[in-house]
Design a protein around this nucleic acid. Structure first.
Length: 855
RNA sequence: GCGGACAUGGUGGAAUGGUAGACACCGGAGACUUAAAAUCUCCUGCUCAAUCGAGCGUGCGGGUUCGAGUCCCGCUGUCCGCACCA
């Protein structure tokens, strides 16, 4: 074969790998293991370029680790429960189960041609009863261990469809189907007690050395540990209101006490007072997201209640009900200090409440007007008549002093609080893992017996009657008989729980299940001991908080309940977050003034402009937009693979952009990748045909360059610098193609090149390896090692700067001493010219780096 | 609104505080060809000089340093997350 044919090569080597079963993960005691995992996909029906990029990155690591002598686990599965399946059933009939398994089959067929080094024997979907049955077993163990409990929580309620809505189904405060104003409503729901582990989850972040700093910071902020003061305001009508504040030092600036509309006192007033009832109802309009609550107009109502200031019983403060106070955080009640909190200030200005400064900047005693004075807690400020006797002190010092003061006087205590809330897992939906409990009139909430697991989802309504998914609400709830069971405890007729679990539960332990995917318990200890932890986890930055935090919680909970070893409490040793694949949008304006989006294949590109193939009208190019079906800018990986091959697609998604950043898909970029691979193949053919007798020149230089390439590419792969590694491979290929070295050196170079490219372009590399007479398959060949003696250079080129501006360069021996280098630098004509008669004040010589002459 | 990140030629991007623009795309010139495609060679930050060279230049404004794309402070813009999307 003289011309590069991706189709031929790729089919052939995929078959060879399958036959040799090279990607099967096998426990080999004594051999180092490596577990590489990419976040498993949701089976939407088609793979997209983002998947290709994600899995290719993982594949590079997996193949590299295989070549460096590891026993590698690289599995794949499907995050298969979730709303899209039910939405599809609503929109076009059919069953979520059929839709999901159909999509899985399609997507697997689409993934196979990529030639990923996956152990497919471990594949599972979270909607397999074998998987979710084990998840139910975990739930029961968590329940026994006190890690799951029930309490009330608010949900988005669509009053027209009479159904619970997900946040994404609430658009501008209205239900997506009905268009009705959404209300917040309370339901009794199941919760994981993640907050009981808040402290440990926070502390352990410090040990995550190979996680991105930004992710660690985001998790720290999310958990949100704070120390503040908790104390009670005495009500003038008797009773008290417990508040929590992180700024007790500003107590002298308090101008009101605020309570959440969901606070017990507000609820009591709501029952007694129609005005309060109206107001609270108004507050409950809109969605439940923090964003919606924060962005909503700040509303308040004077409850008519008064409280006494703890430091001065004659000083009375009004109690307001305010929509921006969250019942979930602290005690659901605060005191407002408008001078040092912008939200409180806006609120006080709106409702004409007093504003009192408690401290000023040291050099600026201007009273607060429209902007609250909120300096960092580490900045020293001047206090106005501070009760704890402070004059000049930082905010932090004042907070600590205030807590000590309150504790000494006995009216308040220092309290550590977390922003992290418990994880509500109940979902009023069909397509999820059933919660394995039974509600019995006499026994209450009773766990299902383990031998009765899995509690399976009913496929139809019995008697062949299909479930009607076009009706809003939970089909399990209205199923004619699925919920009717005997109480596992007393045997009396009882009702099954009809809520299913949040799909985050499914993805919180799949990494552990992959270590023993067919075990008849959630995990197998020996397998978990060997394969855990995940050495390298790869996925999108959008999972920085929820999925990763939930997984960290689950690993701990699984350890507590005996399903994972102590060493796996922190399940992901290293994390890498990759960017998205983007593509230009081609947009024009339609007759109705709305934008019209054109498919890339309907557009001709000329001179940086885009024209419609049909009619030739120019359309606007919007660069680098996230690929999205509705914008018609999705590039189908299958088209790329069928026209260029998998190796080209893999090579392209890794080149150009750093992996953590977005990559722009361009047709010309894909073509360039394809051309390069052809070039490498032709080069191999040329070298194979070279006469071994004919001598060459520059053998030494080529061998040096080869070792340098080994060094650079190895470093690139190890540090996730795939784009940099590929740039080095381009440079090395260019050098090799111009080399006049003898056959032996050239053969060494091309075989090494094939090995270095093998993690990215495994099929092409195998073909070259074979054509050059390599032993066995490249996939199992040991990774090349750069020899130190070829890496050191004898002389180096140093730039010479004068006052930080480059004026000349000098060639010096690698180990030349500083005085020598300094003298050489000063002798340079260009340096003398730049000095312009001035005398050097100082000469800085950084060995091997730079010379800087300061005048 | 809150939390986190990012910003470098026409484009994607490279650069342990040490020669900014590696590598690639686009574009230009040439070779090969009857011709085109493919392939190969060379040029390609901007401005002036039009060769030598000089000046400017990493979103904007300050600062630290012998030296800043890189570190610090303040802005602007874009992206991600905000607990029931996965």
């Amino acid at each position: 074969m003289s011309r590069y044919s991706a189709a031929e090569i790729e089919a052939r080597w995929q078959e060879a790998w399958d036959k040799a079963d090279v990607f099967k993960a096998v426990r080999q005691e004594g051999k180092p293991k490596y577990y590489v995992l990419e976040m498993f996909p949701y089976p939407s029906g088609r793979i997209h370029m983002g998947h290709v990029r994600n899995y290719t990155m993982g594949d590079v690591i997996a193949r590299y680790k295989l070549a460096t002598g590891h026993s590698v686990l690289h599995p794949m599965g499907w995050d298969a429960f979730g709303m899209p399946a039910e939405n599809a059933a609503m929109a076009s009939g059919g069953h979520p189960k059929d839709w999901t398994y159909g999509n899985i089959a399609t997507m697997k067929d689409q993934m196979k041609p990529l030639g990923l080094s996956i152990d497919w024997s471990r594949e599972f979907a979270t909607c397999d009863p074998e998987y979710y049955g084990q998840q139910q077993a975990l739930f029961l163990d968590f329940l026994e261990a006190g890690l799951v409990y029930r309490k009330n929580a608010v949900v988005n309620w669509d009053p027209v469809d009479m159904t619970v809505l997900a946040n994404e189904q609430v658009i501008d405060g209205k239900g997506w189907r009905s268009g009705a104003d959404v209300e917040r409503r309370e339901l009794t729901q199941w919760f994981f007690n993640i907050s009981s582990m808040a402290e440990e989850l926070l502390d352990a972040i410090d040990g995550l050395d190979s996680w991105p700093a930004k992710v660690k910071l985001m998790q720290q902020n999310w958990i949100g540990k704070s120390r503040g003061l908790q104390f009670a305001f005495q009500r003038t009508d008797g009773g008290e209101i417990e508040v929590y504040t992180t700024r007790p030092d500003t107590l002298m600036g308090a101008s009101f006490v605020g309570i959440s509309p969901d606070h017990p006192i507000a609820k009591q007033l709501e029952a007694e007072n129609p005005e309060v009832a109206d107001f609270v109802a108004k507050c409950r309009r809109g969605g439940t997201t923090e964003e919606a609550l924060e962005k909503a107009e700040k509303l308040g109502l004077d409850s008519g209640l008064k409280v006494k200031h703890p430091l001065n019983p004659d000083w009375e403060l009004p109690v307001w009900i305010a929509n921006f106070i969250l019942m979930d955080y602290g005690t659901g009640a605060i005191f407002g200090c408008p001078a040092h909190d912008q939200r409180d200030l806006d609120f006080c200005r709106k409702y004409d409440l007093p504003v009192k400064d408690t401290f000023f900047a040291l050099d600026n005693p201007t009273p607060v007007a429209t902007e609250a004075f909120v300096p960092p807690k580490t900045e020293k400020v001047k206090w106005v008549d501070h009760f704890a006797g402070l004059d000049e002190a930082t905010g932090q010092e004042a907070i600590d002093a205030t807590i000590d003061f309150a504790e000494a006087q006995g009216w308040g205590k220092g309290v550590t609080n977390f922003r992290l809330r418990d994880w509500g897992l109940s979902r009023q939906r069909y397509w999820g893992c059933p919660i394995p409990v039974v509600h019995c009139d006499t026994c209450g909430v009773v766990p299902e017996k383990k031998e009765n697991l899995p509690v399976q989802l009913p496929y139809d309504e019995g008697n062949g009657k299909p479930i009607d998914f076009s009706i809003p609400g939970n089909p399990l709830d209205r199923h004619p008989h699925w919920r009717d069971v005997a109480c596992p405890k007393c045997g009396a007729p009882a009702k099954r729980e009809t809520d299913t679990m949040d799909t985050f539960v499914d993805s919180s332990w799949y990494y552990a299940r992959f270590t023993a995917p067919r075990a008849d318990t959630p995990t197998n200890m020996a397998d978990a001991e060997y394969w855990m932890n995940v050495d390298q986890y790869i996925g999108g930055i959008e999972h920085a908080i929820l999925h990763l935090l939930y997984s960290r919680f689950f690993a701990r909970a699984m350890n507590v309940t005996g399903h994972l070893p102590e060493s796996a409490r922190e399940p992901f040793d290293a994390l890498f977050t990759q960017g998205m694949v983007t593509h230009a949008i081609y947009q024009s304006v339609g007759d109705n003034g709305r934008p019209v989006y054109h498919y890339p294949e309907d557009v001709d590109l000329r001179d940086g402009k885009a024209f419609l193939k049909d009619g030739g009208a120019e359309v606007e190019i919007i660069p680098s937009a996230k690929m999205s079906k509705s914008k018609n800018n999705v590039v189908d990986p299958l088209n790329i693979i069928s026209s260029f091959g998998a190796d080209t697609a893999r090579w392209f998604v890794l080149s150009d952009s750093p992996p953590e950043r977005d990559v722009e898909w361009t047709a010309s970029g894909a073509e360039a990748a394809s051309k390069h691979l052809s070039r490498v193949w032709s080069l191999s053919v040329k070298i194979a045909e070279t006469d071994p007798q004919g001598g060459g020149e520059g053998d030494e230089e080529l061998i040096r360059a080869t070792h340098k390439a080994i060094f650079d590419v190895t470093q690139g792969v190890e540090s996730f610098g795939f784009n940099a590694a590929i740039a080095k491979l381009y440079a090395f290929t260019n050098l090799l193609s111009k080399s006049k070295a003898g056959k032996e050196a050239q053969r060494f170079a091309i075989m090494t090149l094939a090995q270095l490219m093998a993690p990215m372009t495994p099929h092409l590399s195998e073909a070259i390896w074979e054509a050059q007479g390599g032993e066995g398959m490249i996939v199992t060949a040991p990774w090349p090692v750069a020899e130190e003696k070829y890496l050191v250079e004898d002389t180096v080129t140093l730039p010479v700067q004068v006052n930080g501006k480059r004026r000349a360069e000098i060639q010096v021996a690698k180990d030349a001493d500083k005085a020598e280098v300094e003298a050489m630098a000063l002798e340079m004509d260009a340096v003398q010219k730049a000095l312009d008669g001035g005398t050097p004040k100082k000469v800085i010589v950084v060995p091997g780096r730079i010379v800087n002459v300061v005048v």
